[in-house]
């Protein structure tokens, strides 16, 4: 049985160079997506060219940080080693208002309160000095 001290560190994102502005912004508490200068389509995750039309002219734009839960699950057992101390934790596919999807965690709420199509907003959780992960929490009324 692994002791808590022996538990592996959280996996850090393996960053593609062109995505660095996203991670820099996340560390500063801003959620960036890209928008194609040619066709106008938004995209996430960061690309070197628009997955819709192929144009290389992608602008960084700040997302409003609001969206909905497309789907979710509460991890209770058999988590990856680095996450066993976190159970129960919520993994969710988020649909941002801009139309793009991303994987994240739902935090700052009872996991049993999460539901499909519920409104969420971004919040930022520090992983280490280099990385801050965008996460989501229920929209406070």
């Amino acid at each position: 049985m692994a002791t808590p001290d022996a538990r592996p560190a959280k996996p850090r994102p393996i960053v593609n160079a062109w995505a660095q502005p996203f991670w820099d912004a996340a560390r500063a508490g801003r959620l960036l997506i890209q928008r194609c200068r040619d066709c106008g389509e938004p995209c996430f995750y960061p690309r070197i060219a628009c997955p819709n039309c192929g144009a290389a002219a992608l602008d960084w734009v700040e997302a409003r940080g609001r969206g909905s839960v497309y789907s979710y699950t509460v991890v209770q057992n058999n988590a990856p080693s680095a996450f066993t101390a976190d159970v129960p934790y919520v993994v969710a596919v988020i649909r941002l208002e801009e139309g793009v999807q991303m994987l994240s965690n739902i935090v700052d709420c009872d996991p049993s309160a999460v539901a499909c199509d519920m409104a969420v907003e971004v919040t930022f959780q520090r992983l280490d000095d280099e990385f801050t992960l965008p996460k989501f929490r229920p929209v406070r009324r």
Partner: peptide, 9 residues
């Protein structure tokens, strides 16, 4: 590895 592993997928 960049967009899902860090979230415990």
């Amino acid at each position: 590895a960049e967009w899902e592993v860090p979230y415990g997928q």
